[in-house]
Design a protein around this nucleic acid. Structure first.
Lengths: 249, 249
DNA sequence: CGTTCAGTTGAGTTGCTTCAACCCGTGTGG
DNA sequence: CCACACGGGTTGAAGCAACTCAACTGAACG
């Protein structure tokens, strides 16, 4: 594995409350496993099987995407793993993986042996608690997305994921305007929302024309009217935050 | 809470391998909490908040549905909880619930205090392991469904849920034909697959006309040609089974 | 025997997809 | 330095899958 090329522009993350709220309780990993840190190029598929034994990934830097695909090549992105978070792709059999994990930009990850991870959880109740909360929040996010993919219009789906990302990245907008960057193309946004890239484009343009958002070079997103977007998404911002952001309650 | 009316026809379950594979390791609950068993009428909403403190539900008999809904009344069913399984609807804040849990037929459930549950998991490693495996399988099921709801045709979605249910209920078909019963209407099948009840109907009829399945009174389903159905669903039966059925590996 | 409710079927509509053309910024080789 | 190819985003046109609306059936029930 090579060290990451320093194209940090691609996956720069806002360094506000978020990094404090979500990174701090897990920084334990870096002290314990810092020597196992590895750079990963954008596009690399991370395989549990590539390791000696099944592993849990801890993301230090960059974004990972968890996805599944059909034979015809269509893929659905199930979740994004952000810095400070961990993810274990190991299936119930303890050997294979039922999903694909891919680096969306150059990233730095730590691979933690599953057995070591279990021991860690048992030895450190505070870690167990923190991870439980994170799991529940992840479940809540996936449920919200499923609800909208199953039952809502393209506009609602897009509005929702924009708000979800905004909340995850920053802990919430300050006032009415909020800007952030995601290392995603419209194709990937489509894979996340169950839409074609063409329709993602149309929908984003429509939102932009209404003055609710604007987009910049390769997915710099600015939300101008959070209230309107939340309305389209069909969410109450404050209560959504407590549901999907670990530790926001 | 009333005792369940004895309309057991409604939620009769095949009593094959399944009940052994999936119920046995958890029968511990019945011996520990048997006195807390409660009958629940079909349609009842189970609320964590109704209890003194947050609880995890253990289903002894009948089916529960876990769902979320939009303001306009549309709902998405996220998961079914079958006898022998447990589910905790508690949100990350430890107080509220981010989903709705409803009895699909008359059912019997045990409500287990969350704190007691945590203690149980710590004290009984074999329970912890069993529940981990179950969680991972549930994750895998939800991922498969998400993939299809996001990226597949109605036919594929229906074919997939039929196969999923068949596997969960029986551990898999014997030979080419397999019959089972689900306590679900077409509306609910639609809420599960992200389709309108009308389109569920059309799709089931089409499958029936092709001789792949047939349906009986209120959702008795017979699969005549599992291979064809698996093909439509885009799955390999054997490997799907190890992924989504806990302990099938 | 009338009411109700789930399933079925037809007709018409629509939202999203596909296909295709075009634009533009970036990288590359002559 | 220009020519060119390439990949992502944008836009228009056409098609189609699934939706809504509405009418009808048949079983269950009082």
């Amino acid at each position: 594995m090579t060290q990451p090329r320093n194209r940090s522009d691609d996956c720069v993350l806002p360094s506000g409350d978020w990094s404090i709220a979500s990174r701090a309780p897990l920084s334990v990993f870096e002290s314990l496993f810092g020597r196992d840190k590895r750079g990963v190029d954008a596009g690399t598929i991370l395989r549990a099987e590539g390791e000696e034994s099944p592993v849990r990934f801890h993301v230090v830097e960059g974004w990972l995407a968890v996805s599944k695909s059909l034979e015809d090549g269509d893929q659905q992105i199930l979740e994004f793993i952000l810095p400070g978070e961990t993810y274990d792709p190991t299936a119930a059999d303890g050997r294979t993986s039922f999903v694909e994990v891919r680096a969306l930009c150059d990233a730095v990850v730590i691979a933690i042996d599953r057995k070591v991870w279990s021991r860690l959880l048992r030895d450190r109740p505070e870690l167990w608690d923190a991870e439980s909360v994170r799991d529940i929040a992840a479940q809540a996010r996936q449920s919200e997305r499923m609800l909208r993919i199953g039952k809502s219009s393209a506009e609602t789906r897009i509005a929702y994921v924009l708000i979800e990302m905004c909340l995850r990245l920053s802990g919430g907008p300050n006032g009415d305007e909020w800007a952030f960057h995601v290392p995603l193309g419209q194709q990937q946004l489509g894979d996340f929302t169950g839409l074609s890239s063409v329709h993602v484009c149309r929908t984003l343009r429509r939102l932009a024309r209404q003055g609710i958002i604007s987009t910049g070079d390769h997915m710099d997103i600015t939300i101008h009217d959070v209230a309107a977007l939340a309305d389209l998404a069909g969410v109450d911002l404050a209560s959504l935050r407590t549901e999907i952001i670990p530790g926001a309650a």
